[in-house]
Design a protein around this nucleic acid. Structure first.
Lengths: 270, 270
DNA sequence: CGGCCAATTATGTACATACATTATCGTCGC
DNA sequence: GCGACGATAATGTATGTACATAATTGGCCG
């Protein structure tokens, strides 16, 4: 730990027995991990405990640095990170403010079905049900891709412990990923293959609930009309559409779940 | 821009007419915005364009800094941010590597229904259908809260342009938020009130698809069995459960959608 | 009184330097 | 050959200093 070197150097704040700095307002650094992290925790703690209320202005970097007995840059790093994580809002010349808590965008991770099944100790398999090449606009249309573009169409079923879990309907842009025509997909699932092949850049998702049609119900082995989770994903790389997928999963065999990924509280061990 | 000051100082890399540094491998800084951002773009560009392949090792900070003609700290900041965003993996002594692209966690934002409706130009209303206080374990049980804890139970319906969109079943921990008993919820919806009142810390979500029961179908004005999106959210603050909500929305009247929020490509303007 | 402009203040970026941390690599000893 | 162990090379953190940037504040002038 860098405590030893620091102790001899800084003399800003009072120090407890274990080299823990105690600021004037009673908040204190816990001595665990990097300094900027301690500052983050200390400041975030003040906010979460309501000591610094939403909308309120924080002491400036200069004051905080002398409050905690560290340099301005260290404070700056901590505060800038908290701002990036949405706890604080900073305005030049005006100061740093506790974010007006409208942190209303929770985030939900969407994982690969194969990963989910194997992680839960299940046996994952998949089957290619249908595979064909076609041109956009002939029979079906992918709106964000020009008509006439050659496409690979894949129908695929994902199974966990032998039971069908998810049906996948996928289009791949052959102009963007020509190599895909040579890939048999006999061991690697299309989603995995694409993730490994194509340098990923961005994706758009839509999630909704639908009733299973007769065809789909037969494939998934459920009654027609059973509620299914529908996930549509379009992946784009350098402004070119790569693939458009539609996942359909039986409602009670598959769900999305997770803590909000911008969960700073977890990160901060509060 | 800080270009003027920099031009006279650094003499590491070749410079074009507009003060744009051109590195030896042909990649170049675009001169737009902060230096560390330019480095980020330059490096991310190499990766996205496949010039540096997945798993490959990057030049070390020293080499990059002389390559781009900036200081090591600036390179460090850029590279550390890219690592934090998942493009790179760093290991001390070993070096910096292009992430083996398993960037398999896409993220989906979950927004407040009221926000969604008003943003789309609709008229948002809600109705409290039922409100009572009870103790945990009597009639129903909230697993993560001790039995006997006083709870507020709320049933609520959210409407867009007069049509029911979402049914909300909520429990609020009265030990954690005693003030809620005095709130009539005649103008502010419970979700909004809680977000404003309680310093938020973290939330857990589960999303799945269910078939509407007869009761629910009547409330939402659809046929029994219609597929509905079910969102369960538990909010926690400083290790205390605040509220447990269950949202049920008609499949084709409501959906979750969004770009992945860790979309560095967007952030990087690539 | 109102608008323009300059001083001030707070954040933002960059560089230099120093030292901490930690795997890896290679060497030495057995 | 193989394990212990220390040198080494990479990233990580902390501080000092300087200047850039932006926006509020306040004063000056019409």
């Amino acid at each position: 730990m860098q405590g030893a070197a620091r102790q001899s150097l800084n003399g800003g704040a009072e120090r407890g027995p274990a080299g823990v700095s105690v600021a004037l307002d009673g908040s204190s650094l816990d001595g665990k991990g990097p300094l900027f992290g301690q500052i983050k925790r200390a400041v975030a703690g003040q906010i979460l405990r309501g000591r610094w209320q939403a909308g309120e202005r924080l002491p400036n970097e200069e004051q905080l640095s002398s409050l905690y007995g560290v340099s301005r840059q260290t404070v700056h790093k901590a505060i800038a990170l908290l701002a990036r994580e949405g706890f604080l809002v900073r305005r030049r010349r005006a100061g740093t403010f506790v974010a007006s808590v409208r942190h209303d965008r929770f985030a939900l991770p969407i994982e690969d079905i194969g990963d989910v099944i194997t992680r839960n100790g299940g046996v994952y398999e998949f089957r290619i049900l249908d595979r064909k090449t076609l041109r956009n606009g002939e029979g079906l249309r992918w709106p964000d891709v020009p008509d006439g573009t050659p496409l690979l169409s894949l129908d695929c079923l994902h199974l966990g412990d032998g039971a069908p879990i998810q049906y996948e309907r996928r289009l791949v842009n052959l102009d963007a990923v020509p190599e895909v025509v040579d890939e048999p997909f006999d061991s690697v699932a299309p989603s995995r293959w694409l993730v490994d092949q194509v340098p990923w850049s961005s994706a758009e998702h839509t999630v909704k609930a639908v009733n299973a049609t007769a065809d789909l119900a037969a494939l998934l082995g459920v009654e027609p009309g059973t509620a299914c989770l529908s996930i549509r994903r379009q992946t784009v790389h350098l402004n070119r559409c790569i693939t458009l997928v539609h996942f359909l999963s039986v409602g009670d065999r598959f769900s999305l779940s997770g803590s909000s990924i911008t969960d700073s509280a977890t990160e901060l061990n509060l």
